[in-house]
């Protein structure tokens, strides 16, 4: 890199479901409405951010079976909101967090390819695995996978996506 100016990459993380997201101020607005996402991403794009980053959570926080009610909860489907945002942006990258534990490998590969084509080559995947049985109870295979199996499944999902 000698002689050239090094640049850092900037990603913008949407402040949605989180215990640090401010919501009690009326000016904070909705963290669910498409308009909020659109404004946030278009602002980041104007500011020349490289990518927009979306986290994932596949269950609501709860304690002893009761939904935790003190923090922001509720979010859109990550891939679907990114596909909508692709239609209202031009250049910014769109990074989806998707757990290989509770998404199907073939469907994930097809969806990321779809998002990549719809956005003109702007999709990215933050690959994670999941440990919580509460999320697992929302899916066909049921409870979560043991540590070793989680990473075997993740490796196979990634290999499949690469091949497709």
């Amino acid at each position: 890199m000698s002689g050239s100016k090094r640049q850092i990459h900037l990603g913008a993380h949407f402040p949605g479901v989180n215990n640090t997201t401010v919501w009690s101020d009326p000016a904070s607005g909705s963290h669910i409405a498409f308009e909020s996402f659109k404004r946030f991403v278009q602002t980041a794009e104007r500011a020349k951010f490289d990518f927009f980053f979306l986290a994932e959570g596949l269950s609501l926080r709860e304690h002893a079976g009761r939904i935790h009610d003190l923090d922001v909860v509720g979010r859109p489907d990550g891939l679907a909101i990114l596909a909508a945002l692709a239609a209202v942006t031009e250049r910014i990258g769109l990074a989806a967090t998707l757990t290989t534990t509770y998404h199907e490998p073939l469907e994930t590969a097809r969806q990321l390819a779809t998002l990549d084509h719809l956005s003109g080559g702007r999709a990215a995947w933050n690959l994670v695995t999941s440990t919580d049985a509460v999320s697992g109870a929302n899916f066909r295979r049921g409870a979560y996978l043991p540590y070793d199996d989680r990473y075997v499944r993740a490796g196979e999902a990634l290999a499949l996506a690469d091949r497709l």
């Binding site: 659109k38 679907a80 909101i81 596909a83 945002l85 239609a87 097809r110 779809t114 719809l118």
Partner: peptide, 17 residues
Amino acid sequence: DAGDADAVLVAAGIAAR
């Protein structure tokens, strides 16, 4: 019907426009 691509994601983009 988007064939091998994901029709719901195609629809999401269309919904925005």
